[in-house]
């Protein structure tokens, strides 16, 4: 999987999401400390948590989740299907997922551009610029769509090994 820019990028986005979570933890702790030690909370914490940390940690990992096919799905009926039907089913699912992510990417991209054009802010006790966080959505959704298409390509042209991998589920339970 080395050298594939889609995979590399998916991985980086999760790293960023992890850092966002770390920043959220530290920022909120600092706010608590400032509030009670110095009676001087960090202004805009609520806005930054909502518009940056939440948005970053939810959307950025989407591509890697798709890459590992880690979304929550129902395996029950799928596992009863014959192998050929499984292949058709996975193909259809990947195509549908790519369409949904693609549509979301398109609509949120235009929204991000609009937000950028008006330099969108949100007004709390202080004003917080929020338009940059809007771009996390189209980036994440587009990469999610690409990952689904990449899987689809592997399903169609990737040979038996790729196919076997794509129709396997977490049937074999991990040990702790």
């Amino acid at each position: 999987m080395r050298g594939n820019p889609i995979l590399w990028l998916s991985d980086r986005l999760v790293e960023i999401a992890g850092l966002v979570l770390l920043a959220m933890m530290l920022h909120v702790c600092a706010d608590v400390a400032m509030k009670y030690l110095f009676n001087d909370p960090i202004e805009g914490t609520l806005e930054v948590v909502s518009y940056y940390y939440m948005v970053g940690s939810v959307f950025l990992p989407i591509a890697l989740v798709e890459l590992r096919r880690g979304s929550v799905a129902v395996d029950l009926f799928f596992n009863m299907m014959p192998a050929r039907l499984k292949l058709v089913c996975v193909g259809a699912v990947l195509l549908a997922s790519a369409l949904v992510y693609g549509g979301l990417a398109d609509v949120t991209w235009h929204d991000a551009l609009k937000a950028f054009a008006k330099r969108e802010v949100v007004m709390g006790p202080i004003d917080v610029v929020i338009w940059p966080s809007r771009f996390a959505l189209p980036a994440s959704f587009a990469l999610g769509a690409l990952v689904c298409l990449w899987h689809l390509g592997r399903l169609l042209f990737g040979g038996a090994a790729a196919r076997a991998e794509l129709i396997s589920t977490h049937e074999e339970l991990e040990e702790v």
Partner: peptide, 27 residues
């Protein structure tokens, strides 16, 4: 002065700063 006050933003928040309250953000 120094009281922790939830202000809805805008003019209220600016007035709060003016009279020296500590603005807190509570949903």
């Amino acid at each position: 002065k120094g009281k922790r006050v939830r202000m809805p933003g805008g003019g209220w928040a600016r007035f709060g700063q003016h009279i020296g309250v500590v603005g807190v953000n509570v949903p």
